[in-house]
Design a protein around this nucleic acid. Structure first.
Lengths: 195, 195
DNA sequence: GCCCACTATCTATGTCCATAGGTATTTGTG
DNA sequence: CACAAATACCTATGGACATAGATAGTGGGC
């Protein structure tokens, strides 16, 4: 149900084609939300049918056209209504911590490898997010720059601050995961080889 | 795909009915993995067809029977193979942080309410997990006690340590989320009412 | 001018999961 | 003993998502 709001948020910045949206999900934003194109195109059509976005065929080359969608006032209203409604927290499904609870069943080397993979995974995320923060601070983020350009000057500081805040949360989480996995490695050392 | 491994992990402790498994998911363990009964019963049948578990009809009252499943050697092998295989990290879908990135579109009171709800949500989780740690330390967890009873004495310390480790990770994450949301509230204070 | 990677869109299949029911028996409580 | 609550198991429907394709035009390099 959140896919459409992720799409509305992105289209709010600037009109895009389904292909563009898919590329955005594949890149940076993909670590907050992701969708394959096979989900994006039908959702856009549904949203257009509901009047939340409107697509227009724009020429592409000499024979072809592509469909670029922009948000309608109804779409903006829907998005803001969602933003102002309480967020429902769905049930957790957490394979990493499910495994951790039963790590005794894994071979010690496998347990170690998994914790190291956990660290590597979150370190990679951390690098990306730190880079995002860097881009926000230095104004080198193309997406954010375009978004700021659509806002009145007095709101830009606000927008920038919220964007930074979101990434800070992701960074804090990644750091917590890394610290936890490191403590797991220490635990394996302490417990030594299994009996 | 992880549901069956969650089921195998639980059935490894002791044979249970589908109803029992569902109750376990509804309670404590449900914060690592959850499944509705409408998913559990069919999955158990599939697993039995594949030879991972075996169910036996045991009498219940005077007319009825219930079906209790236990893990077969093939099931144990499958579970251990999974535990020793690398965990694949699926794409993230994170409604809370998606919203945070666009918090400027929310009314300030709504933004504040959401951050407070985020804090309340994770504080509730925190309480449950701290209680779990307490139960592990004091030996008052029925599930863990039964599991420990199935293990040789020299492995109990190990099992207890891993279980504690898993909950420590969940606690660390919840604390990070709370700290982040609190910093968001401070940010709202600093930015003041919107223009 | 040919080839190839990219852009752009679409369909089809299957799994996972949420939600909402249904039925029958048993067990505990007043 | 009646009755409610819990136990036990089941089906049906629909949405969300993964995966794996198909098709067709475009743009750039050799």
């Amino acid at each position: 149900m959140s896919l459409r709001y992720a799409l509305l948020a992105l289209l709010n910045v600037e009109p895009m084609t389904g292909y563009d949206l898919h590329k955005v999900f594949e890149s940076s934003v993909g670590h907050v939300w992701y969708a394959p194109d096979s989900q994006i195109y039908p959702e856009l059509r549904k949203m257009e049918a509901e009047g939340l976005v409107r697509g227009e065929d724009i020429p592409w080359g000499k024979k072809a056209t592509k469909r670029r969608y922009h948000v309608t006032p109804a779409g903006t209203g829907d998005f803001e209504a969602w933003m102002n409604s309480p967020l429902e927290y769905s049930r957790v499904r957490d394979p990493a911590h499910l495994r951790a609870a039963y790590l005794e069943y894994a071979a010690p080397e496998a347990a170690r490898a998994q914790l190291q993979a956990h660290i590597a995974h979150h370190e990679a995320l951390l690098r990306q997010w730190n880079q995002k923060i860097e881009e926000i601070d230095t104004g080198t983020s193309a997406m954010l720059t375009r978004r700021l350009a659509t806002l009145p000057a007095d709101q830009r500081q606000r927008s920038r601050a919220f964007k930074r805040f979101a990434y800070e949360g992701l960074i804090a989480r990644a750091e917590a995961e890394i610290a936890w996995a490191r403590s797991g490695l220490r635990l394996l050392d302490e417990l030594g080889p299994e009996a």
